[in-house]
Design a protein around this nucleic acid. Sequence first.
DNA 1: CCAACACCTGCATATCTGTGCAGGCTTGTG
DNA 2: CACAAGCCTGCACAGATATGCAGGTGTTGG
Lengths: 117, 117
Amino acid sequence: MHLVPQEREHWRAIDEHTVCDAIDAIGDPERVHAWASRFALLGEPGRLALLLSLHRAGPIAVSDLALATGIRDTAVSQALRLLRASGTVAAEKDGRIVRYRLVDTHVSALLDSLSAS
Amino acid sequence: MHLVPQEREHWRAIDEHTVCDAIDAIGDPERVHAWASRFALLGEPGRLALLLSLHRAGPIAVSDLALATGIRDTAVSQALRLLRASGTVAAEKDGRIVRYRLVDTHVSALLDSLSAS
DNA sequence: CCAACACCTGCATATCTGTGCAGGCTTGTG
DNA sequence: CACAAGCCTGCACAGATATGCAGGTGTTGG
């Protein structure tokens, strides 16, 4: 689609039409990167378990997450730090307890995909 | 209130009910691991671009994938090896050309989530 | 047969990332 | 006040991984 003449010379495509479709499918590289980051967060079993817990069990304390997942509390903290930095979860402090909740609607929707299977 | 044996002592949950919900949400650890693997495959910008291309541009040759994504052909091959090993894509040989296509329906469904945003 | 092409592989490397440990901070409790 | 609970951080280390390079296989065309 967005072909510049110059580039087309380097282009020795086997099926030019297919390549154009592929380029269209990729679209904005920034968007791809953003989604890749999201998927990467879900791409580790421990974090995925944490997110599933957060998704269903509403606001939940850090130590309870550690209990439910079997992950050590320091590892949970590290994971939550990532999720916080990426805007996936939010923290609410209540005394010495900190409860986390899921705030990224895209991630929430992805987690719903798991319920089916 | 009588004390329940040992187990309950390890269970120092802040909100026991929430913990049970969280455990239910996690469900089968194997299933979590399987999905985490899937998400991990989508969690790298290059592979995500490849998968988006495969998703929309049907069966497509390796060199065309390299063209569309801007990734060197050897890197594309390496990525496709992973995707092949995980059963995400399949290869069809046609002379000296090998065309790949997306075969994992779960991944396909996930990629549709990208079209919306 | 030879050369170009499409693709794959092994290896070495640099980078990333998850984890455990030790310790610190804040808040509630005796 | 002293202590414990809940949570967080920095650091060091091990494991995973993406990438480039060099070279290999198999196919097509002259």
